[in-house]
């Protein structure tokens, strides 16, 4: 279980997260929803060690992640698929996948994991020698997810995987997220696409202005009056 307890996070002197707490249970799909600037990406960046909380703790399997550097967090099995994919554009798809498996554990199983990723995304196998920057948006998202999987994650964190994709591809991406979850990977998903993500998740938290304002199962939240009005436009 990944447990975030009361974290305060700042960019310089500007506070962006106030006392944020939530937990991700093993093997579930947990969603953080919220508008632009609500602090969703900041939350993920803090978990993966790019930012340090001034207050509060982040714990995973008895280990304090907030005390670790980003490479050590990956070593613990908590892996971040960043917003806007952030592939290494001038490297091939295969090289991008390799870059996902730098931790000693993942390195050992690199060839094996790559086979698994190619099974999940046959398209990536076709394109493996192609520079990542030349892929279409949907393919790039697959490559980014594949790169995340290469680290052998226990928890995979997705930052807006539907961003900039055509509606039909958004469906595909969410199908992939569900499939990865079925393979035994815990999923922490951050999205603005509230309707679709609430429908597919186990539980969700709503972030507003850097604070958790609501939590519950996807169904509960879909029927919540505030969520309906603010996010679903009903």
């Amino acid at each position: 279980m990944l447990k975030v307890s009361g974290i305060d996070v700042f960019y310089g002197d500007l506070q962006v997260l106030w006392d944020v707490s939530f937990e991700v249970r093993d093997n579930e799909i947990l969603v953080l929803v919220g508008a632009n600037g609500a602090g969703k990406s900041t939350t993920l960046k803090t978990i993966s060690g790019l930012l340090k909380p001034r207050k509060g703790t982040i714990e995973f399997g008895g280990v304090r992640l907030d005390e670790l550097s980003p490479d050590k967090v990956i070593g613990e099995g908590v892996v971040h698929v960043p917003e806007a994919r952030r592939l290494f554009r001038e490297m091939t798809v295969e090289e991008n996948l390799i870059m996902g498996s730098l931790s000693p554990e993942a390195r050992k199983k690199r060839a094996q994991t790559m086979e698994w990723v190619y099974e999940l995304f046959p398209r990536m196998k076709e394109r493996r020698k192609q520079a990542a920057g030349t892929l279409s948006g949907g393919e790039q998202q697959m490559a980014a997810i594949g790169r995340g999987l290469m680290a052998l994650p226990k928890v995979l964190m997705f930052d807006e995987p539907s961003l900039g994709l055509a509606p039909i591809l958004v469906q595909d991406v969410f199908e992939i997220v569900k499939r990865i979850n079925k393979e035994g990977v815990t999923v922490l998903l951050v999205e603005q696409n509230v309707r679709q993500t609430l429908a597919m998740c186990d539980r969700a938290y709503v972030l507003e202005n850097g604070r958790v304002v609501l939590e519950g199962t996807g169904k509960d939240l879909m029927n919540d009056a505030h969520v309906k009005e603010a996010y679903l436009g009903i």
Binding site: S48, L50, P70, D71, I74, G75, H80, P82, R86, L87, F88, R89, E90, M91, E95, I98, M99, G100, L102, S103, R147, A151
Partner: peptide
């Protein structure tokens, strides 16, 4: 590869554990 990755996207490289 880590050197090339850092040159292309430093933050993404950090996320990969570089």
């Amino acid at each position: 590869r880590s050197i090339r990755a850092t040159a292309q996207d430093k933050d993404a490289a950090t996320l990969m554990g570089v």
